[in-house]
Simulated assay, not measured.
Amino acid sequence: MSAATGTTWAVVVNDEEQHSVWPADSAPPAGWRTLGFTGSRDACLTRIAAEWTDLRPAGLRRRMGAA
């Protein structure tokens, strides 16, 4: 999928709290949901960088916190 100029992107997240971008005019793939933020690809990546600061999957974070 190209990062065509003019494409609106959405920030999506899965159950492990991993973030990605997805074309806003398409439904996210199974297991992913939108977070309500859309914009240019760069704007979405900037938003992800600000919010997703711990890149470990949620399940790993839970297991490490329980240890």
Rank of each mutant, 00 (worst) to 15 (best):
G6N: 09
G36S: 08
G59K: 04
E17M: 06
R41I: 10
S2F: 07
G59V: 01
D25P: 02
A66M: 10
F37V: 11
T8C: 10
R61K: 12
A49W: 08
T38D: 05
V12E: 06
A30Q: 13
A67I: 03
D54P: 02
N14D: 15
S26V: 05
H19L: 05
A66E: 15
G59Y: 01
R62H: 01
F37L: 06
Q18M: 13
L35A: 02
G39S: 12
R47V: 02
A27E: 14
T8Y: 02
W52S: 13
N14L: 00
F37N: 01
A10V: 01
E16P: 00
L60T: 02
H19P: 00
V11T: 10
R56S: 07
T8Q: 11
A58H: 10
G6Q: 10
D54R: 06
F37G: 00
A58G: 00
W9E: 13
A66L: 05
G59A: 13
L45G: 01
M64T: 07
S2G: 12
V21P: 01
D54G: 09
V11M: 09
V12C: 15
H19C: 07
A30P: 02
V11P: 03
L55N: 06
W32R: 08
M1I: 09
W9M: 12
D15R: 05
L60D: 09
R61Y: 04
F37I: 01
W32H: 06
S40R: 03
G39R: 02
P28R: 11
T8D: 08
L55T: 13
S40M: 02
P57S: 07
C44R: 06
W22C: 15
R47M: 03
T34L: 01
D54V: 10
R33H: 13
W9L: 12
A67T: 08
M1S: 14
H19D: 05
E16M: 07
S26P: 00
P28D: 10
M1A: 15
A4K: 13
P28F: 09
T8I: 15
T8F: 01
M1F: 11
A67G: 12
R62T: 12
W22F: 10
T34C: 03
V21N: 04
A50K: 14
R47Q: 11
W22R: 06
C44Q: 04
D15Q: 04
A50C: 01
A50I: 01
D42Y: 09
A3G: 14
Q18R: 09
D25F: 11
G6S: 08
S20M: 08
P29H: 08
A4E: 15
V11I: 10
